[in-house]
């Protein structure tokens, strides 16, 4: 099964899927960061320009600091997210899923200049499009991944029914699907919901349940599974 995740196995033998982010969100995040950088740079240049030679020197120092440390500081101290990444809902982590360290962030951002070659990130683009986990050279060297931040696990409302235990044991995935069907009751058309509930074996329902009541039965199971 093809999926856009990178799997990390913990010492306890649990597989954690990390949803890796690819070229499009990362490029958009970079564009936002670039705009912020240009504006900051412009403001500094304007103020320093009034100070003659001293200002010029100071500007160069500030430019250097801003250019090399802007991403590093944000990545290390703001949970792996520069403002652009935050806007796109992605963040940088080590490839084992742990928060990024100063070393790794430094390496990946210094190597941004290698990805830049020969002209405006050609190497980086090609590398990201061909790598399984969408890594650019900097990511490979630093051992980092750019992943989607997980959304807060919000409980969607489900239709109220009297909770009822399923007549036979359902696996975890099957339980999730029954629950998900109830959670998506507003997004799916009525006909489709009935059709889906008719796919299930008759054994799951009390005898002589007609089409529409089957869905209600499933909602009752969902209420039970959620513990209402």
């Amino acid at each position: 099964m093809l999926d856009n995740t990178s799997k990390v196995e913990t010492p306890e033998g649990i597989e954690l899927p990390l949803e890796v982010a690819g070229v499009v969100p990362r490029a958009l995040a970079y564009i936002i960061d670039l705009l912020i950088f240009i504006i900051l740079n412009y403001v500094i240049a304007l103020t320093m320009g009034l100070l003659g030679n001293f200002g010029e020197g100071l500007y160069l120092i500030l430019f250097f600091i801003l250019f090399w440390l802007y991403p590093v500081i944000f990545e290390v101290f703001r949970n792996g997210q520069t403002p652009g990444k935050k806007a796109l809902g992605i963040k940088v982590v080590h490839q084992d899923g742990t928060p990024i360290s100063l070393n790794a962030s430094f390496v990946r951002n210094i190597l941004l200049s290698a990805d830049f070659l020969p002209f405006f990130y050609t190497t980086g683009f090609i590398s990201m499009m061909l790598h399984k986990d969408f890594k650019r050279l900097g990511d490979m060297a630093a051992g980092t991944l750019v992943i989607y931040t997980e959304k807060e696990n919000k409980e969607d409302p489900i239709p109220k029914e009297k909770p009822k235990a399923p007549t036979f044991a359902l696996s975890l995935e099957e339980q999730r699907s029954v629950l998900s069907l109830a959670e998506r009751h507003q997004q799916l058309s009525q006909a489709r919901q009935d059709e889906l509930s008719n796919l299930l074996p008759e054994k799951l329902f009390p005898a002589n349940t007609d089409n529409h009541n089957r869905l209600k039965q499933l909602h009752a199971f969902a209420n039970w599974l959620r513990g209402h």
Partner: peptide
């Protein structure tokens, strides 16, 4: 042959990148 689950818009594009790689 792809893992079915509701994805956000960008994640769906990323899955496409993997399909293209294959």
């Amino acid at each position: 042959s792809i893992k079915l689950r509701p994805r956000n818009g960008y994640a769906a594009i990323d899955l496409g990148t993997r399909m293209a790689q294959r």
